[in-house]
Design a protein around this nucleic acid. Structure first.
Length: 867
RNA sequence: GCCCGGGUGGCGAAAUGGUAGACGCAUGGGACUUAAAAUCCCCUGACCGUAAGGUCGUGCCGGUUCGAGUCCGGCCCCGGGCACCA
């Protein structure tokens, strides 16, 4: 049932159809169906207090067009939305106001939902999920337990940002230029006990499986670079004082071993103290202190200016017995390789710079093969190009690439080297000292209690216990039984951090200090008397919570079966829906979210609970929409465009069309208030072609079955069907809209048009401007009062109608356009040449010249090369 | 520094190696109107020319090709990512 409005009153039409869709569940995905499935997913939003930004509807409109198109193509479409609702802003708000972050989060969700619904997206709201809902995060915790028992989670002392003024730990994104984002207080590195996930165990697969996914190349490259695989060798250098044991270094260039003139240890290297000579002790100690005080930022910022101190110790080069000095310098990082390198200044820019600064010797061991590239015959150092070895006894003359493995093998035979692969990827710091996150389903117990528990529940614990030692006591991490999940957050009196680096949960003694039943996971506060039963032990809960990434690591799986209380998603749902066929979201998640989710997915695959190796087979990044001034939209610049404003002034159908018409989806493009009028007029124009000013069907639309459209209009309709379909499949929404504009212009010029043609056109428009299309469809009698344009199958084009009998052939002379003419398709070359020679515009250019070559592309071009 | 992406009218943009600028915006002119809005029609890359027409033109310089926005080499500028990873 349509509205009664006479003019195009989007303020009436849009809410009307939104309630129609809601009442009729037009977007509901059937949990079981004989139809083929199509799963199209948006990166779900963090419901911030600021509400929806214009960038959200950009990607969401694209996926909505695809969802509606695929439904019309006969697919059972899963198009869900939810809330990535744990996060820092809610916690900061809670600290400020004292209200529970959950209530603020729920308010924001209500607002987001209102805004998203006003945009008319065909989400299946029955599948809405919220990562802060215990029914959801129960399974986030469950997945953590799976990681835990497979030995993929451990605890470690890790440096984190600590702000003494705020008495809290800050996340990386809360720190800029060594100051806290809030208040601008200085921050420092502090070692705190953290949970870490062993993502590095999956480095090789995360890298290799990138080949199998349909992702933007740039995103794949970013992940490749992030994983940072490099092949090389670990080589043992004896120390001059052999008692200290060998020094292990990592290098990718074993072939340059003869060029090693000094060694460098990272300041944190465990051998530094032992090998430093007494004369150098003070200098080294001083240097270590200085570099420890440097933040990571400073250490990289000062990259240009290398510094270091000589340790006074020497190592012996295993290839030639050379005695090389050992330096300590912070350009070598403890976190990569072995934290120690052999320096080959002749063939490494960093080593060269350092050697020049401290006047260390430089020995060239690679010589370019291509001497012409080095005019004087001497190569400029440092030289990192291709070449053959020199000054390398037993290897001189060999190409460097071959020597790499040869030297490694030769040293390996002597037991002093091994071929090694290193990754830049680090294990994932998975804990936050926060309240508003998923609590870890872990309690800490003593050794004896752990042993008993592990014996009772052997399937739940890792082969090696996870422990940490504090003040001489070793604590054992005991997981809650899966049946005891979810572990919910206790209510707290204050959201202020505890002040000692622990989360606010550390202050909730009744929740924290427990009598714990190791078999059932039941708990009572330790202040009460020990319950009766042999399984009760003293325990302290883990006070860290999980980072925001956790909930978003697996939400795409939950959408396939969002209310399942027995498992995170049933095997049937996972088999039918599988993983998203298309995943759309911002490129800012190119590395972290997408890498973390891939990691979890692979773990679940290894567990045998998901059937696919990769979670996101096809990925697309929408571009950023800039403000009208061409700058990034921001409150401070005052160039922010709110969807609410545009919906009120132009309607969501216009907004959706405009967002798609702006340019290619992936491009960065500026918003323009002037240009939006163009698509708004386009809709008005169609409205006027369909309806009279009284809102009745226009007399130019013929309902007479005997009426036939002009052949040109029919042909254009079929061209438009093809173009719009192809462009939606290729995500070229801007050109799809252009072609619909061309059709609308033709429709306007046609004196009459059949209703069938107009209805077909409305079907093409429906995914883009769904409310508008529904309204006109209903008014033109496209179906009965209860039908929806969305329920009709996508129009098919008739290839016969696309056939052309005449084409414009372009005549060129020496590659220059000189004329053109309509010719029948399939015109033989001789006829084409004759036509060209006879063409009054072409003929003068041929006069007095002879044709030496003819290039004929039938239906396109005839190029006469003359001399 | 390294790795990506991109530079096309006044603007957003379009173009399987085959008429550069589709579609839209803006500007100008016209129609309708008492007038305005809305709508419709026409022009609109630059230069020369009354016109017909011609010359030039896709960041810059070269190359391949009958023909280059598109392919190749070098450079400049803008945007993004990484950044002492041995």
């Amino acid at each position: 049932m349509a509205t009664q409005c006479k003019e195009y009153n989007f303020l009436e039409i849009e809410p009307h159809w939104q309630s129609f869709w809601e009442e009729n569940h037009t977007a509901r995905a059937e949990q079981t169906s004989s139809k083929p499935k199509y799963y199209v997913l948006d990166m779900f939003p963090y419901p911030s207090g600021a509400g929806l930004h214009i960038g959200h509807p950009e990607g969401y409109t694209a996926t909505d067009i695809i969802a509606r198109y695929k439904r019309a193509k006969g697919f059972n479409v899963l198009h869900p939305i939810g809330w990535d609702a744990f996060g820092l802003p809610a916690e900061q708000h809670a600290v400020k106001t004292g209200t529970h972050p959950a209530s603020n989060t729920q308010n924001n969700i209500v607002n987001f939902k209102r805004q998203i619904k006003a945009l008319g997206f065909s989400y299946d709201w029955d599948r809405e999920i919220d990562t802060t809902d215990p029914k959801y995060f129960r399974w986030t915790q469950w997945i953590f337990l799976q990681l835990f028992k497979r030995g993929l989670a451990y605890v470690d002392e890790r440096p984190v940002w600590w702000c003494p003024e705020l008495r809290t730990v800050l996340a990386n994104e809360e720190v800029t230029d060594g100051k806290s984002e809030v208040g601008g207080f200085p921050v420092e590195r502090r070692n705190l006990r953290q949970w870490v996930l062993r993502i590095t165990a999956y480095a090789e697969r995360l890298l290799a499986d990138l080949k199998a996914v349909d992702w933007p190349d740039s995103t794949k490259r970013m992940q490749e670079a992030w994983i940072g695989r490099s092949e090389g060798a670990e080589i043992l250098f004896k120390l001059e004082r052999e008692a200290l044991g060998p020094l292990k270094i990592f290098t990718t260039r074993p072939d340059t071993l003869f060029g090693c003139t000094y060694m460098v240890l990272a300041p944190e290297h465990p051998l530094v103290n032992a090998l430093t000579t007494s004369e150098q002790k003070a200098a080294i100690e001083d240097y270590r202190k200085k570099s420890a005080g440097k933040s990571d930022l400073e250490r990289t910022d000062l990259a240009k200016d290398k510094s270091g101190v000589c340790s006074g110790a020497f190592a012996i080069n295993p290839i030639n017995g050379a005695r090389v000095p050992i330096w300590v310098a912070d350009y070598v990082l403890m976190g990569y390789g072995t934290g120690a390198i052999m320096a080959v200044p002749a063939h490494d820019e960093r080593d060269y710079e350092f050697a020049v600064k401290y006047a260390l010797p430089v020995i060239q061991v690679i010589e370019p093969t291509d001497h012409s590239a080095n005019c004087a015959g001497t190569s400029k150092l440092p030289y990192v190009g291709d070449g053959n070895l020199v000054h390398s006894d037993g290897y001189t003359g060999l190409p460097w690439a071959d020597t790499k493995s040869k030297i490694t093998a030769d040293l390996a035979a002597r037991g002093v080297a091994s071929a090694t692969i290193n990754y830049k990827l680090r294990d994932w710091l998975f804990s936050r000292q926060r309240y508003w996150g998923e609590p870890f389903p872990i309690v800490w117990v003593n050794a004896a209690d752990y042993a008993r528990a592990a014996a009772a529940r052997p399937g739940d614990v890792p082969s090696a216990p996870v422990t940490y030692t504090s003040e001489g006591v070793t604590h054992y991490a005991l997981p809650l039984p899966p049946t005891a999940l979810p572990l919910e957050l206790p209510s707290v009196e204050t959201y202020l951090p505890s002040g000692n680096g622990e989360s606010p949960l550390a202050n909730v003694t009744p929740w924290l200090e427990l009598w714990f039943d190791v078999e059932t996971g039941a708990a009572v506060p330790a202040s009460e008397s020990r319950p009766v039963g042999h399984a009760w032990v003293r325990a302290r809960r883990e006070t860290n919570t999980m980072p925001q990434w956790a909930g978003s690591c697996w939400y795409y799986l939950r959408f396939t079966d969002p209310t399942n209380a027995a498992t995170f998603a049933s095997p049937e749902a996972l088999k039918y829906w599988g993983v998203p066929d298309l995943y759309v979201g911002g490129a800012e998640h190119a590395v972290l979210h997408l890498l973390y989710a891939r990691f979890w997915h692979k773990v679940l695959f290894d567990l045998g609970v998901v059937p696919q190796v990769e979670p996101f087979t096809k990925l697309f990044h929408q571009g950023i929409i800039l403000g009208e001034d061409g700058e990034k939209m921001s409150k401070s610049r005052g160039n922010v465009v709110s969807p609410d404003t545009i919906i009120a002034s132009h309607g969501t159908d216009t907004l959706r069309l405009y967002l798609m018409f702006l340019g290619p989806l992936e491009a960065m493009k500026p918003w323009s208030m002037q240009q939006i009028e163009g698509v708004h007029r386009f809709l008005h124009k169609i409205w006027r072609e369909c309806l009279t000013i009284d809102g009745e069907m226009s007399p130019k639309i013929s309902t007479d079955a005997a009426f036939a459209d002009a052949p040109e209009l029919t042909k254009l309709l079929h061209e438009t069907i093809k173009k719009v379909g192809d462009d939606i499949e290729g995500m070229r929404f801007n050109t799809a809209i252009s072609s619909m504009m061309i059709f609308a212009n033709a429709l306007q010029k046609a004196p009459r048009a059949s209703r069938a043609t107009v209805l077909t056109f409305l079907q093409l428009l429906a995914p883009f401007a769904p409310h508008f299309a529904e309204e006109l469809w209903a008014r033109l009698g496209g179906g009965d009062a209860k039908s929806s344009i969305q329920a009709t199958p996508w129009p098919a084009f008739d290839p016969a109608k696309l056939a052309v009998t005449e084409v414009k052939l372009v005549f060129q002379v020496n590659g220059k356009h000189r004329g053109d003419q309509l010719v029948p398709t399939g015109l033989p070359q001789a006829d084409a040449v004759a036509l060209a020679q006879a063409n009054p515009k072409v003929a003068p250019h041929l006069e007095g010249k002879s044709v030496v070559r003819i290039i004929y592309v039938p239906g396109k071009i005839l190029n006469l090369v003359v001399a």
